[in-house]
Amino acid sequence: MLRSMATLLAARGRDRQHADGREEWGEVRLALPPSLPATMGCDAVGLPARHGFRLMSRLRGNGCVFADTDWWWWIVPAGSDAELRWPLPACYAAGARVPDRSPRLIHRPDHGSPYTPPIPLYLLVCQLTGIAPAWSGPAGHGLPTRR
């Protein structure tokens, strides 16, 4: 059975045990403040907590950021993984469904949008991990090149 990346990353959290001894980790959808509507849908990009403060300090226009003891999650518009390969250890959580380790809102934006701009976030994650940014387009459609 396939599981989401967020479920696979759930090292701790509320767990259930099956009759055969297997454990199942729960997920939770990050809840945005009612005053910050997610008109474009929402996904989340997570990074291990050790990178959280560094990323927050380098990003302009942080949207809502959630954290638990192990991961920090930035809210991005739905589909922000289209044509992007988020490098490990980043985790992309469609629908902002993350491991249920009781994440809490740690940053609320001053502006009226819950979103962190995904491209600057992506570029900083690439810089942080030492991975060159890579965009993949539909078959036969690469990024434009100069001639």
Rank of each mutant, 00 (worst) to 15 (best):
L2K: 13
L2H: 14
S4T: 15
A6I: 03
R14M: 06
R16I: 12
Q17H: 04
Q17S: 11
A19L: 14
E23G: 09
E23M: 13
G26T: 10
G26Q: 13
V28R: 13
V28Y: 10
A31F: 04
P34V: 12
P34G: 10
S35I: 06
L36Q: 01
L36M: 04
P37F: 09
T39Q: 11
T39I: 05
T39A: 13
G41D: 12
D43A: 13
V45C: 09
G46P: 10
G46A: 14
L47Q: 08
P48F: 04
A49L: 11
R50D: 15
G52M: 12
F53K: 15
R54P: 00
R54N: 04
L55D: 03
L55F: 06
M56W: 11
R58V: 00
R60V: 07
G61Q: 12
N62R: 01
N62F: 00
C64G: 01
F66M: 02
F66N: 01
D70Y: 12
W73R: 09
W74Q: 00
W74S: 00
V76P: 06
G79M: 03
S80N: 02
S80M: 01
E83K: 04
E83S: 04
E83Q: 04
L84T: 04
R85A: 12
R85V: 14
R85W: 06
W86I: 02
P87L: 11
L88G: 14
L88Y: 12
P89D: 05
P89V: 05
A90S: 08
C91W: 10
C91H: 10
Y92K: 05
A94Q: 15
G95V: 07
A96E: 04
L105N: 05
I106C: 08
S113Y: 03
Y115K: 12
P117W: 05
P118A: 00
Y122P: 03
Y122Q: 03
L123D: 01
V125P: 02
C126V: 06
C126K: 07
Q127Y: 07
I131V: 08
I131M: 01
W135S: 07
S136M: 05
P138R: 08
P138W: 02
P138Y: 04
A139R: 15
G140V: 11
G140I: 09
H141S: 11
H141G: 05
L143N: 09
P144T: 11
P144G: 05
T145N: 08
R146P: 01
R146T: 09
